[in-house]
Design a protein around this nucleic acid. Structure first.
Lengths: 212, 212
DNA sequence: TAGATTGTTAATCGATTAACAATC
DNA sequence: TAGATTGTTAATCGATTAACAATC
């Protein structure tokens, strides 16, 4: 199995590592220097062997009797995930969703440097959201090339999403982060991550039905 | 393993079923009456046995030589997921993200009936977004009770998310759909679905680093 | 009929968990 | 030292895939 349903080892492990990282960020300074695998596992209601395996995979060594150094764990995960590295991004679609994403403060922490938004609405073009300029989507490809954009974030209507993605790809992006409710086709050397809200709706419908 | 990392059978299967459903919705009328498991599998680059198992689990029977009836597959998945059923929802946080969600047209199709948004900003309270009223978050619990809300959608800042969730729970919601970047605690008979954007950021960072 | 596709059992594969020696 | 926790191997579990008889 491949393609859309990548619940593979790598994907799931990255997710776990991110959660450990966020956990340590939040509960780091107040507590002591050491943290055990069972403490992390307890927080997430998971098996402690799993935590040790994940940490070992990232190259973190613990000490029997004590556990792992909090700072080292956070630092090493950060390094391994590449969270320190920066890359340029643009948002295609300056609607509410695009604006919401543009305002996310977390981006800087994860190396994402937003450069601009794009839209086809003359009323929006030339204005700013969260300090970032809104450009005409007609010049998307050229601007992507010039600004050396590596990531394109899709928040435009589904109907025009594919053609925007094609422009982004032609402009040289290496990854697409898709928030439009549509399956996009990209060349296989471009990384595509979908945030399909309708999948969430399906799951919610299912649980709503079950709950008495 | 439980809790946050539910990549269990049910969860993954629901996701697959939703994708089949969306696929059929989109490619249904133009094509013929019958569709084979290998056709669906081909589209998603997955194994055809998997498709047959999923459809069998939902109670759909195919016919050798022909395949499955398109309409029957869509109808049965819809029924099994409970997509026809309606339930009431509110959005807590009338910012850009809350507004973006309020404007999603798809909601009606999935039975989600949005009743209102809530905020603590006096400038927003009393106004409307996408036709839905914005109420004072101070009356969240009471309104949730009165309007018989079953789902609370969290789009407020992470700092106040937990207390909003507690109010929603006290008001009687049965599920929380969380878009705030924080781990929420809910009683275990309330269904919680997270859309953690920071997990996506971590994965993007990882792939950005790897790609040459 | 011949052939294509389902439905289902069996085999494989890989992830999760258990067990336990090593170690500080 | 005694005891707690890591690191790792082995066992289990379950999901995915292969095989193939049933069937229209």
């Amino acid at each position: 199995m491949a393609g859309l349903f990548e619940h593979n080892f790598r994907h799931v492990m990255l997710e776990r590592l991110m959660h450990y990282y966020l956990y340590l960020q939040k509960h780091s300074l107040s507590e002591g220097e050491w943290i055990s695998s069972s403490e992390i596992a307890g927080y997430f209601q998971m098996d402690d062997t799993q935590v040790r395996k994940d940490l070992a995979a990232v190259g973190i060594r613990g000490r029997p009797r004590l556990g792992y150094r909090r700072g080292e764990v956070a630092e090493q995960i950060k390094k391994w995930l590449g969270i320190g590295n920066t890359y340029n991004a643009v948002i295609v679609g300056a609607g509410r969703l695009g604006g919401a994403i543009a305002e996310y403060k977390m981006f800087q922490d994860y190396g994402l440097k937003l450069k601009a938004l794009f839209d086809n609405d003359p009323l929006k073009i030339g204005k700013r959201i969260g300090g970032y300029p809104i450009y005409d989507v007609r010049y998307l490809r050229r601007q992507v090339e010039q600004m050396q954009i590596q990531l394109g974030i899709i928040t435009c209507p589904a109907e025009i999403a594919q053609q925007c993605v094609d422009e982004l790809a032609a402009g040289g992006v290496r990854a697409i982060w898709n928030f439009a409710p549509i399956n996009l086709n990209v060349h296989k050397n471009i990384f595509l991550r979908n945030e399909h809200i309708s999948i969430g709706l399906g799951e919610l419908a299912y649980y709503m039905k079950r709950q008495k």
